[in-house]
Amino acid sequence: MDIDDHISNRAATSHRRDGGSPPDELNQILRAGSTTGPEIDVFGRAEEEEEGVLDRLTRLWMDERSAPDILLWPGLMVEEVLDKLQAQSEMVEHLQSDPRTSEEEHFRIVLIQTEAERVRYLLRSYLRTRLYKVEKYAAHIIATPDLRGRLSVIELSHAERYQEMLKKHFEVCALNGIPENLRSLTDNEPGVPEMVTRPNLDQPVFVRAKKRCQPVTLTNGSTLEMERGDIHLVRYRAIEHLVRLGDAHLI
C-alpha cells in the first residue's frame, strides 16, 4: 500500500480555478485553513464542542498512536482533508502565477504552504501508524471480523497480501522441510507462546474524558467515574469502548 497515493492522486483530478482578485482568494485560503475552535489542549483547559478538520485529524492521530489495537478507519474525514489540501494547493498555485499578487501576499502564501505541509506530515504519520499495525497484526486482523471491519478497502487488501507473502516466505525458508502437521502458522497450544501476534489490550494508557462518562469497571473490580477533562492512567481494555465512541481520547 503506497501511503503517498492517498495524498498525491488528487492531482490527477485537479483543475485550475480562475477569477477573483488575489487578496480575496488569499483571505479565502486563510479562512479555509483555520479551525472552528482554539488549539488543542490535551489537558482540557480550553476546548469547544465543535472541532475543525485539523483538530479531528490531530485527535485521531493521537488516539491511533496511543491505542494498542487498530481503530476504525475514518474514511470520510480523510477524504475531506485531502480535498481541502488539493483545493488549497490549486488556489496557491493560481495566486503565485498571478502578476497582481503583491510581495506581502507572496509572503503570506509561504506561511500557508508551511501550514499545509504540517497537515500532510500529520496525515502521513497517521497512515504510517495504521500501516505498522496492519502488518504487525495481519494474521489476527484477517481472522477477526470486527477488526477487518475497521480497515479501509486498501488496508484490508494489503493485510491479506502481506500475510500471504509472509506465509510463502516461511514455506520456502523452513516449513517445506518439516512434517506437514507442524507447518501451521496459527497453532495455539497450551503452554506454548502464541504464533499469532495480538495487541496487548492490558497496556496502560493515559486517557482524558471528553465528557462525563459512564462508570468504568477496572480489572481489580473497582469502579472509576470520569468527569469531563479528567485524566487517568488505566488499562486500555477498561476504556476501549469510550475511545471507540469518542467519549474519551488517548494522550
Rank of each mutant, 00 (worst) to 15 (best):
R130G: 00
L127Q: 04
L122G: 04
L122R: 14
T129V: 07
P99W: 13
E135Y: 01
L122P: 03
R128C: 00
S125Y: 09
L111A: 07
L122Q: 12
L122D: 14
L123H: 08
V110F: 07
S125Q: 13
L95E: 01
A116Y: 03
V134R: 01
H106E: 15
R118F: 14
V134D: 01
S125M: 13
E103Y: 07
Y121V: 08
E93F: 10
E104V: 15
Y126M: 06
L95K: 02
R108K: 14
L131C: 03
Y121E: 12
Y121K: 06
Q96W: 10
Y126K: 02
L123T: 05
H94I: 05
L111D: 10
E115L: 14
R118P: 01
F107H: 11
L127P: 00
L122M: 15
E117V: 04
H106S: 11
H94S: 11
Q96H: 06
L95C: 02
E104K: 15
P99Q: 09
S97D: 15
V92N: 03
S102A: 08
Y121W: 13
Q88D: 06
R120F: 07
L123A: 06
R108P: 03
L95R: 01
K133Y: 14
E105R: 01
T129R: 12
T101G: 06
E115C: 05
V134N: 03
T114S: 06
V110Y: 13
Q96P: 02
H106I: 12
S125T: 14
L122V: 05
L95Q: 01
S102H: 00
I109Y: 05
F107V: 13
E117L: 07
H106M: 15
Q86N: 08
P99Y: 13
V119C: 04
R100K: 11
S89P: 02
P99E: 11
R100Y: 09
R120L: 08
T114M: 08
T101W: 09
Q113K: 07
V134H: 00
V134G: 02
